[in-house]
Design a protein around this nucleic acid. Structure first.
Lengths: 138, 138
DNA sequence: GGGTGATATGTTATGTTATTACGCTTGCGG
DNA sequence: CCGCAAGCGTAATAACATAACATATCACCC
């Protein structure tokens, strides 16, 4: 069985480095965070990071979190996730929980059908406190 | 009956100007777009806009669109909308359709309950093509 | 091998979005 | 009148993202 965070062999050097950084971090990183982590590997410019991220996101190996302007590695080992993914982002610890809900997806499909809207991309992000952090605070 | 886009009387001057700008536009505007529209009214600095927007969003009179880094006036006249609002954003014409779906909301509530996550804010944005734009393209 | 196209890269500069820090003003309850 | 909270104005800067251009790499096919 493959390790949870194997890096696909056909990634380019920069893409591999960026994905590795995201995997190693475990939590969301901004493009500039990643850049700082990879300066030692010779990366110097934001664009190098953004280009790699574009490809990773396109392939579903990473996700962009719009409410954070940040990126996370996909939680799924060989992520070929289809459709809607929701992200729950804890304000306390920064952890991101990634999940899919078929009912929500179906519901959205219904809405699209009745209104004639063609969905290209859906963003769903929940901000709040995770159970562990609520526990600590109590 | 009140006009769809009445401006509450207790807004400050800057808040009123910003909300007016959003109402007049009909579509999403970035903070800097708004600033440009309001230079004639004496507004000079981004912060003046952001501060007004913060209040408007807090009161539900405007919404932030995370995927656009932009803002829209709330579609509802005396918007005291509670809970989850979804936005469908057309890539063709830029129009934003704002809707609520109780089933999705309930579903999310279920998820929160079972995971113990305390939801503070939910963002849901759908990017795609509206019916009218699909029509035109055909 | 040489030509060709697609993809990736490196670099500089710039554009766009958002916040920090500071001080002044205004309105209001005590 | 005092003190406090909310709002305002301004300057500076931080944080996020892309444009434009030149070069490099690699698969492919002649």
């Amino acid at each position: 069985m493959a390790h949870r965070h194997d890096i696909p062999a056909d990634l380019t050097r920069n893409q591999g480095l960026v994905l590795e950084a995201l995997n190693h971090s475990g939590g969301p990183l901004s493009a500039y965070d990643i850049l700082d982590l990879l300066r030692g590997d010779g990366l110097r410019a934001p664009l190098q990071i953004y280009r790699a991220l574009d490809k990773l996101v396109e392939r579903g190996l990473a996700h962009r979190l719009e409410t954070l302007n940040a990126f996370v590695a996909c939680a799924d080992a060989h992520c070929h996730r289809k459709g809607l993914i929701a992200f729950a982002i804890c304000a306390g610890c920064g952890k991101v929980d990634e999940f899919a809900d078929p009912v929500i997806e179906e519901r959205l499909g219904d809405w699209a059908e009745t209104t004639g809207f063609k969905v290209e991309r859906t963003t769903m992000e929940i901000r709040g406190q995770c159970a562990a952090c609520l526990q600590k605070a109590a």
